[in-house]
Simulated scan of single mutants.
Amino acid sequence: MFEYKGWITLSFDSYEENFLKLKEQIIFLDECIDKYNNSSQFAKIVNCNENYVLSLIAVTNHENGILEDIKALLSLIAKVLPASYGVIFYRDQEGSHSNNYFVIRLSKGTVEEFTDVILSPCLPVIEN
């Protein structure tokens, strides 16, 4: 099983001085994330008091390239909305590191990956 859950705060600049540019990119990204909505994946941009947050959730049978798609999406977000930030937690139970969660962080236009220390090692932290 492969699963991921996360959020990305979408922002064009730290002070949101270019709100029209932000709105344009939100419309563009809304079209890009459509492929992440099916019976095992969910993606939605939510407007919370004119602050936009992308929520991503999935539980699939296999990874099947989803991880690279997610990283590509975050790289695209970093390019079009450079002040965006957030995290995606994922676990691939079929991979060689099945006892660990990993975190993909988007911050200051950079996408980085880390081994999680909050839920890992899954056995015994979250599983018996």
Rank of each mutant, 00 (worst) to 15 (best):
S39F: 06
K5Y: 05
C48I: 09
K71L: 13
L56Y: 08
E63F: 00
E113S: 13
D116A: 05
S55P: 03
A72E: 15
I66D: 00
N18C: 10
L10W: 03
N37R: 08
D69E: 14
I126R: 14
D13W: 09
E50R: 12
Y4V: 02
N99F: 00
I8A: 08
N49W: 06
A58T: 02
F42D: 07
K23F: 02
G6I: 01
G109P: 04
Q93F: 03
G95C: 09
A78F: 12
D34K: 11
L74A: 13
V87C: 14
E68I: 09
V87A: 12
V53C: 10
L119Q: 14
V46D: 09
E113N: 09
S120K: 04
G86D: 04
I26T: 02
L22G: 02
Y4G: 01
P82F: 15
E127F: 11
W7I: 12
G109H: 12
L10M: 13
A78V: 07
L22F: 01
F28T: 02
L76V: 03
A78M: 07
Y90N: 05
E94A: 11
Q93I: 04
V80C: 13
V80M: 06
S84R: 11
V59W: 06
H62W: 03
Y90E: 01
L54S: 04
G65E: 03
K5L: 09
G109N: 11
Y85W: 14
N37I: 03
Y52F: 15
E112A: 13
I27Q: 11
Y4A: 04
C122W: 06
N100L: 12
A58L: 05
I118D: 11
I126N: 10
K21V: 05
S75V: 09
H62Y: 07
G109E: 07
L29R: 00
E68Y: 09
Y85P: 05
T9D: 10
K23I: 07
K79D: 15
L10V: 03
I26D: 02
L81F: 10
K79F: 13
Y15T: 08
S120M: 12
A58E: 01
L119Y: 15
D30P: 02
G65C: 08
G65W: 02
Q93W: 02
P82M: 09
N47H: 08
F19Y: 15
V117F: 13
F89N: 14
H62T: 06
